[in-house]
Design a protein around this nucleic acid. Structure first.
Lengths: 117, 117
DNA sequence: TTGCCTCTTGGCAATATTGCCATTCAACCA
DNA sequence: TGGTTGAATGGCAATATTGCCAAGAGGCAA
């Protein structure tokens, strides 16, 4: 089990950088909102409920990762999704969560199953 | 732009916990290897090239997130993927990386385009 | 039992992330 | 020009992540 050409570590580092950008609740919330329409920083700030500077930094992380793009209009900055695969991302994450829930329920079911005393 | 029922923060926290488990190059490498077959900790350790205890901790993070499951056999522990949606996850991440690359090339292209001097 | 092997856990230092405040910047208006 | 507004940046403390070494824990075999 060696790595070499089959598993270039740089590839996984690049992937991890993108995944890391997606791994924060506030950023996920913003992405979900942005999947409907373009939004300015002020709207996103209100949505997230954090300090404006915090939201701005989150957005710069997403932008750096290539997940969103921005557009200036006067004094405002509008952000929009740059990728269309987010739905697949949600689907994957949600399927993990759903499976976890089922596993938990299975444990409870076993413990309280009729005839299990 | 309010949150309320439409955007329960707990949902995004749960999603972020899973995404965070996926956001590390060594863990992504292991997941990729596990997508082919079940592997023991010793094999994964050799693959990753880190200390065995480090790999064990990475695996416990993946297990905690519900992404992998383990099975003991004698003194060895085998890990396997617990989800089947990882391909979609790769697809999404890779499409971001590909888009980033295209954007970079577009910039270079503009800068060096014929007649742009 | 003892010793060996595989893996997990505790502990710790180095590093990275997060979120606020304060400040700066840029566009707009009076 | 100065003032206002929306956004980005600097700085900093609190927190989380990472990865190693050392120390268990458990199975197996002599």
């Amino acid at each position: 089990m060696t790595r070499k050409a089959k598993h270039p570590i740089e590839r996984y580092e690049a992937r991890a950088r993108v995944a890391k950008a997606l791994a924060h609740p506030s950023r996920l919330l913003m992405l979900d909102a942005l999947s409907e329409r373009e939004l300015c920083v002020c709207e996103l700030t209100e949505l997230v409920g954090a300090d404006q500077s915090t939201v701005s930094k989150h957005l710069s992380i997403l932008k750096q990762a290539g997940v969103v793009a921005d557009r200036k209009e006067g004094t405002m900055t509008f952000y929009r999704l740059k990728i269309c695969c987010l739905q697949e991302f949600w689907t994957c994450i949600e399927s993990v969560l759903r499976q976890n829930l089922e596993d938990q329920q299975a444990v409870i079911g076993d413990r309280c199953a009729p005839g299990s005393r």
